[in-house]
């Protein structure tokens, strides 16, 4: 089953580096995305905001990027919480651009 997200965006706000009770690093952030995509054979503008979360080494490094940074990330989607229908991008890798 595939679940893969590739997304470029600007970091709007981050929670700062935190830790799970087991001591694993984690960071949550909001990203602004703006791009041009092809749809029904024509170009169109996309502007949206996305919530993202990361754990472990990725979180540790990502948390050092200040708000305003542009990142290109890959990851997957999951529910925001067990009782929510909203989705969050789980970042597994990223590059600063």
């Amino acid at each position: 089953m595939s679940n893969r997200v590739e997304l470029t965006g600007q970091i709007l706000a981050t929670s700062g580096l935190r830790y799970t009770p087991a001591g694993l690093a984690t960071v949550a952030m909001r990203l602004a995305h703006a791009s041009e995509q092809q749809e029904a054979g024509r170009p169109r503008q996309v502007v949206c905001e996305v919530e993202a979360i990361a754990f472990g080494e990725t979180a540790r490094k990502l948390s050092q990027s200040p708000a305003g940074s542009q990142v290109s990330l890959t990851g997957f989607l999951d529910r925001k919480s067990p009782r929510s229908n909203l989705l969050t991008v789980h970042v597994t890798d990223y590059e600063l651009i």
């Binding site: 799970t20 009770p21 087991a22 001591g23 694993l24 984690t26 979360i53 754990f55 472990g56 999951d78």
Partner: peptide
């Protein structure tokens, strides 16, 4: 005991108080 690093059920690291 020490809190687990990942959920014993689904494997997610996102364990919260």
């Amino acid at each position: 005991s020490r809190p687990p690093e990942i959920c014993p059920d689904c494997g997610s690291p996102d364990l919260r108080p």
